[in-house]
Simulated assay, not measured.
Amino acid sequence: MSRLLSDLGVELPVLAAPMAGGGTTPDLVVAAARAGSMGFLAAGYKSAQLLAEQMRTVREQDVLYGVNVFAPNPVPVSFDAYSRYARTVQAEADRYGLRLSDSVPKEDDDDWSAKVDLLAESPVPWVSFTFGIPDSTVVRALRRAGSRVLQSVTTVEEARLAVEAGADALVVQGPAAGGHSATLTPDRPIVPVSLPDLVAQIHGAVTLPLVAAGGIGTSADVAAALQAGAEATMVGTLLLRTDESGASAPHQRALADPSFDTTVLTRAFTGRPARGLRNAFIDRYESSAPAGYPAVHHLTAPLRKAAAEAGDQDLMHLWAGTAYRGAEQEPTERTLRRLTGGL
């Protein structure tokens, strides 16, 4: 068993990734743990109070788990660029009786301080961060509380910064990952690179244990990442159709629908690069979407919610990594065991 898996206290070299926005549920996290893996509650887009409730739910099941937090790394958007985009997408909002074109940019930090305070007061085995690298004082406080810290990185440079901040291990996220990229520079293009190559690059540059994530769909993908230098892997998209998933019904249907035949990186929904199934909204608005997170996320959120409730797959975000065809309707345990078969 690798040092990291021993530290984690888990058997399987495939962990359950945090999926903010509803995909990850307490039931999914518990199911992963009972399969010999470990899952991460997604703190993103929820209040510290709701996160605390979900932590209590999982803790009551006496299983190992982690919590993933969005570390502040805002991409400000000018009022003019924001207003121009708001007026552009208003045509879609009209059908749901929503008024977006009069809104003003909302810049927030996703309840950052309250979540850090919660995790310091009610420590969990692992805390992971994405979008930004927290100050070393935050890392030290969490470690004093008894947590170990995972930092998501997408380049060698980011890995070195995470080492300087005091991270215990790194999640190496390749560009094939579904949902938001963990990049620290979301206003710059994402550089194409295979996950094994990225793992090998970072493995050669730092000494921290690595968890490989992004585009993993088969046991062969897991094996390739481990061979490149990772001590474990992490999957998210493949769990979106499991029995314990909280992904919406339209999202789950789209993952198995042959008419959705490719994924693309887009900032049309949130102003930050994220990979999802290509649909009409992306085709119409990717070219005009400004970089601007979280303001653009807040702008389109009511439209995406209304579209999801109406089952309108053309106007909602359908986050998915490139291996989305491997997502099956089955228990989480079966998916995780399937990915580790033969290892």
Rank of each mutant, 00 (worst) to 15 (best):
L299G: 01
R334S: 14
V193T: 14
L51T: 08
A232Y: 04
A177F: 10
L299I: 03
R143S: 10
A247W: 04
R95M: 11
A159N: 05
L184C: 03
V153Q: 08
A228V: 10
S101F: 05
Y285I: 00
R253V: 02
P123V: 11
P189R: 10
L315N: 13
Y293E: 10
H251L: 07
V163A: 00
A182Y: 08
V124I: 09
A17M: 13
A141D: 08
E158I: 02
S128C: 05
V89N: 00
L198G: 05
G276T: 12
A167C: 11
A17L: 08
V193Q: 15
V222Q: 03
A205R: 06
H180K: 02
M1D: 13
V222G: 07
R272W: 13
D109T: 14
V211C: 08
K305A: 14
S245K: 04
G341V: 15
G276N: 13
L142N: 00
A200T: 01
E286N: 06
L277E: 00
D243V: 09
E330Y: 06
A31C: 01
G179Y: 05
F131E: 05
G292M: 08
A247V: 10
E309Y: 04
V156C: 11
A280R: 15
Q151P: 02
E309C: 00
L41S: 00
L15G: 02
P74N: 13
T263E: 09
Q201M: 15
I216V: 06
L41Y: 10
P192A: 05
R87V: 11
T237D: 07
A289T: 00
V211F: 01
P294Y: 01
S288I: 14
S122Q: 15
S181A: 15
S2I: 06
A323M: 07
T154C: 15
S194A: 11
G23N: 04
R188S: 14
M19C: 13
T207S: 15
G97I: 05
T155Q: 11
A228L: 04
L15N: 07
L170Q: 12
